[in-house]
Amino acid sequence: MGNQINYTDAQKELEQILKEIEIGDVDVDKLSEKVKRACALIRICKEKLKNTDDEIKKILEEFNQENK
């Protein structure tokens, strides 16, 4: 069940982060931290979900490129 709890927790945390970003008045530094955390969570989930981590690399690269 460990796996499952992580997916659920990850989703909860992601939704919380999204909520905070959408509603809250997060300052830029905190925002960056939160977005980094969100990316890490997505990466963990994606790794667990899929055989390959190419997809995850793509996501991270995409994110990094767009926000340089």
Binding site: L14, I21, V28, V35, A38, I42, E66, N67
Partner: peptide
């Protein structure tokens, strides 16, 4: 996940 990611990305970009 991707939806959240996109939303976060959009919001992040907006904020930035």
């Amino acid at each position: 996940l991707m939806n959240i990611f996109e939303k976060i990305k959009t919001r992040f970009n907006e904020k930035m």
